[in-house]
């Protein structure tokens, strides 16, 4: 078995009588970029919420780097090395760009309140390190989020930059697995292309393993090592982009039964 970063075994999530994720098996190898696709309501974001601990699965096991993370609190899961971004942006809007990223370093820093009140040398050293980390992570996006932007409130950023800042914030938790929830949603074609390149760079330069939900098929095609298609919480196809895109079940999920027949008419 290769180096499996994330492994889901028979994960089921039911809200009352509604099963949103049904006996899902999924795995991500180290250094892979795996895309999850599927129509609205397929359970993609629920999958992310299960992995990050927002929901506890009704059944099944989720393993991160070999050990189960089911039942851990979300912050503990993040501290183990899984970070995510949100489909609907959830930045700390009234904090500065730099503070947004610095805040995410909480999990792997130590200085307690007493040390902070006294400003001990150790605390100050750590604070400088956090600041440097934040600036480095923001620097990952070229000139987009550097310089004067550092001290601006996050709400002053454009939509595309907010998406970038969310990724920078997630990487500041020092994760090994990044979950990106529709990173290119709402972006124009240029920005979408840039985002696709960025995701590749995150893996190649940043060294993160990436699980990404994406609707833009050009992006999915461009970045994915492997594609997983979900529909109604069930995995309906898995493989390379070509394999999945031509899978009749996937076509049916997106276009409905008889789509091909109607086209023929």
């Amino acid at each position: 078995m290769a180096d499996r970063v994330l492994e889901l075994q028979g994960v089921t999530m039911a809200f009352g009588g509604l099963t949103v994720v049904d006996a899902l098996d999924l795995h991500v190898e180290r250094g892979e970029i795996v895309s999850v696709i599927g129509p609205n309501g397929a359970g993609k974001t629920t999958l992310f919420n299960l992995v990050t601990g927002v929901y506890r699965p009704s059944a099944g096991d989720i393993r991160f780097e070999g050990s189960s993370i089911v039942g851990l609190e979300p912050h503990a899961i993040t501290q183990r090395g899984i970070a995510r971004t949100f489909q609907t942006l959830r930045l700390f809007l009234n904090m500065t760009v730099r503070e947004n990223v610095m805040a995410a370093a909480y999990g792997h820093t130590q200085a307690g309140v007493i040390r902070s009140m006294l400003r001990t040398p150790g605390m100050r050293r750590e604070e400088r390190a956090i600041r440097a980390l934040a600036e480095e992570r923001l620097g990952f996006f070229g000139e987009r989020l550097v310089g004067y932007r550092w001290d601006q409130p996050a709400y002053s950023l454009s939509y595309a930059n907010r998406r970038r800042l969310e990724i920078a914030r997630a990487t500041a938790t020092n994760p090994r697995l990044l979950l990106l929830d529709e990173p290119a949603a709402g972006m124009n074609p240029n920005e979408t292309l840039e985002m696709a390149e960025l995701i590749g760079k995150l893996r190649d330069v940043g060294g993160y393993t990436i699980l990404v939900i994406e609707h833009d098929m050009h992006v999915v095609e461009g970045i994915s090592d492997r594609v997983v298609a979900l529909d109604h919480g069930v995995k309906i196809a898995e493989g390379t982009f070509e394999q999945v895109a031509t899978d009749p079940k996937v076509v049916e999920a997106y276009l409905g039964t008889g789509a091909m027949a109607r086209k023929a008419l």
């Binding site: 990050t52 927002v54 993040t78 501290q79 995510r84 700390f92 904090m95 805040a103 909480y106 938790t173």
Partner: peptide, 18 residues
């Protein structure tokens, strides 16, 4: 920073390891 983060968005703060 963590306090202010949780004021802004508790879920996001939790997800960012706080």
């Amino acid at each position: 920073r963590a306090w202010r983060s949780l004021r802004e968005d508790p879920l996001a703060a939790e997800m960012m390891g706080m």
